[in-house]
Design a protein around this nucleic acid. Sequence first.
DNA 1: AAGTTTCG
DNA 2: TAGA
Length: 204
Amino acid sequence: MADVIEADGLAILPGRITPAEQRALAEDIRKIIKKAPLFQPVMPRTGKPFSVEMTNCGPLGWVSDRAGYRYQPNHPVTGRPWPAIPERLVKLWQDLGAPAEPEACLVNIYAEGARLGMHQDRDEATFDAPVVSVSLGDTAVFRLGGTERRGPTRSVRLASGDVVVFGGPSRLIYHGIDRVLSGSSRLIDGGGRINLTLRRVNPF
DNA sequence: AAGTTTCG
DNA sequence: TAGA
């Protein structure tokens, strides 16, 4: 189980999602991927591919391509609107005391070997709402820094069912995924990790 | 091995 | 500067 941290608007909530709810969520995501297929984002300018695959649900989805990072209402490949955010995730958002309703839910899929470099979630037009992150499947080695790119970082393991809330002064904290511990969970057929990130994009 | 900095 |  991950360490409990709760300070400066950052909360790491080990086991916040029950195993039954984790299974239901994994099934929700399977259906979302069927409607909104995974795509491989690339870095702005360089075109270097991410090692994670992505899709979204909600009125807006986060995408990255050569032109940059942005939120958009349609899938970059199919052109269709993103599927709705599952009701159980909207309820989680509300239960955690987050305002209004989430507008975007980024779905990051980590196969074995996938990583995500240190970054801030700063493409939103408002930082007044927290970012809520849900881990499913294999345990991740999560790296957590401060609001400045340089400075000390710490490593925290995030297991299936853990929830991280980035709020208040911690809303713009640097974070990333160093590595996924393959075979550490049986939640997802074929292994791997799913991360769900609920966000408010526009002021409420 | 883990954490930090640099490069493109 | 969500990669290496």
